[in-house]
Write a protein that binds this DNA or RNA. Sequence first.
DNA 1: TTAGGGTTAG
Length: 614
Amino acid sequence: MSGALLRSNKYGCGPFHLAGNSFWFRLFSSSGISEVQNEQEAALIQSTASKVCETIRRRPRWEGFLLSLFNPSSSGILHPTCISLVICRLSDSNPLLALRYYLWLTSSFSDFTLDPPAAASLLSALARSRAWRAAFHAIRSTKILADISIFNSFVVQLCSDIRSIHRDKNLLDNLCHVLEGHFHPTSCLHTSLSLVSWNSTLSASLKAERIDLFQRFYAMMIESGTAPDAPTAGYLIRAFCRECRPMEAYHVLRDLSRNGIIPDVVSLTELVASFAKVGNFGKVSEILHLMIAGGCSPDLFTYQGVIHGLCNVASGETMVDEGFRIFCEIKVRGYAPDVVTYTTMIDGLCKSGRMDDACLLWSEMIAKGMQPNSYTYNAIINGYCKSGDLEKAQKLYDEMLSKGLEESTVSCNTMIAGMCVKGMLAEAIKLFDTMPKKGIEHDLITFNTLIQGLCKVSRTSDAIELYLRMAALGIRPSVSTYTPLIQVLCEEGQVTDAMELLKLMEAEGLEPLVCTNDCIIKGFCRIGKAEEGMAWLSKMLHSNLKPRSETVNKLVECLSSLGLVDDALQVVNVMFGIGYSLGSSVCHLIISKLCGNASYQTGHVLNEIILMET
DNA sequence: TTAGGGTTAG
C-alpha cells in the first residue's frame, strides 16, 4: 500500500525526482527513512497536502510564511508525494495558483524539479484554461519540460487552440522559440516531438498565416529526424501555395505521387486554385487528372477554385466563358453549386459585362432555395455600378439592407466607386461621411476611390485634404493614392506641387507608374517649361521607361512653339527610335518652324517628316 | 469529426 502510494497515487502523480543532495532527501536520510513506509505517513502527507492547498487558496502572500506554518521535518510538506498532490489538486481547481506554488518551489529550492506526471498535470491544466502565457512562463523559467511526452501533449493542445493563437499573435512564436531552444544541439533533450505534434505546428502556422514560422517548424522537424507523412506533405504544398510558389508545391506533389502517395483533397485544391489564379490552366488540368487517377476526386471546392481563376478579369472574356461552361458541366455531373460557387460565377459574369446572365444565375440560386449573402449582393451591385446602372445598384443595396445583411467597408467602397463614375460626388461624399457614424471603417480603398473621384472632377484641394486625412488616420497611401493627385496637379499646371508629391511617394518606397512620368512631362509642357519636360523624358529613357506617343508629340509641339526646333528634332529622333510617328498637326508646326528658320539644315529629319506626311 | 472556396480601386 505504502509502496503503491509512492509509485503512483490516485491523481496519477508518481515519485518526485530527487537530486542527491536535496533538502528532502537529506531530511529523510538523516532520520533513516527514505520512503513512505506506512499508512500513517501516507495519511500525514494527504492531510498536509490538503492543508497546504487550503492555505494557498485562502491566504494571500502565503509564500512568506508557508514554511513557518508547516514544519518541513514533521509535516511532510516537502515530500515529493505531497508536492505532487498539491500541484495536482490546485491544477484541478485553480491552475494559476498551482503555477504560483510551482514557481515558489523552483525559486526556493535551486535543485527542485517536478516529477513528470505532476508537471504534465500542471501544464495540461494551464492548457485547459488556455493560460498560455502562464504556461510559457513556467516553461521558460523552469525545467518543467524535462519529459518529451509532456511537450507533445502541450504542443498539440496549443496548436489546436486557434482562437487563442489568433488573439495572441506571439503564442506560436513563443512555441517555436521554446522548441528551437530544446532541439538545439547543446540541449539535453534529444528526442524529437512526435509526428502528430510536428504536423499540428505546421497546421497551426498555416491557419495563423505564419509561413515564416511554418518554415522554422518544418526545418526543426526535418533536422530532428522525423520523417514527414502525407499530411505533412499536404501542409508543405499549402505553405508553398500561400507563398505564391505553386511550382515548388507541384514538385512536392510529383515526388509524392511517384511513391504512390496522394495528399489530401484540401491541399490539392489549394494547389489547383494557385495555378488557376496565375492562369496556368495546363497545370490545373494535369493536377485534376492526377487527382482523379489517384482516387482523390476533385470536389466542389476544387472546381470553385478553377472557375474563380477562369473568371478572373486578367484572364479575359473567353476564360469567363470557359468558367461558365465548367459551372454548367459540374451541375450536370451531380455537383450542387452553393452560394459561394454561384457568387463566383455571378461575379465573373458581371465583370465581363454579362449582367443578363448574372441575373439568370441570381434567380436560379434563389429558385434552388439559396439566399444571396453580402458577397453575392456586393458582386452584383458592383456589376451594376460598373455598367453605369446606379439606380439598379442602389435598389439592390437597399434590398440587401432590408434583408438584414450588413453594410461593410467593401459594400460602401463599391457604391462610392459607382457614384464617382457617374460624377455623383455629393452622394459619394455623403456615403463616405456616414460610414464612421454607422461603425464602418474607411480603408485604403475607400480613400483611393474618393480621391480618384474628386481628382476626376478637378476638386483638387478636396482630394488633397482627403490624402492628409488618411495619413492622419495612419492609413499608408499607395501608388493608387498618388497617381490621380499627381495627374490632376499636372493638368492644372501645378507641376511643383506634383513633384513634391512624387518625392513623398518615392520616399515611401513607392514606384510611380509609367503614366505618372507622362503626366509630369505634359505638365511641364503646359506651363511652357519644355526643356524640363525634355530632361524628364531623358530620365525616363535612361530608366528604360517608354513614354506614350501622345506625351512625346506634346513635347515636340511645345518645343517647336517655343522655337526650340533643335530640341524638338532631337525628340522626334527619339520618337522614331521607339517606333512612334508624329501627329499631323505637330508635323505641320515643326515644318513651318523649320521653314521659317533657314539656318536649320536638318535635311535628314525633314526628309523623314515629309515622307511621313505623304 | 474536419479541413479548403467567393465581394471593393488600380
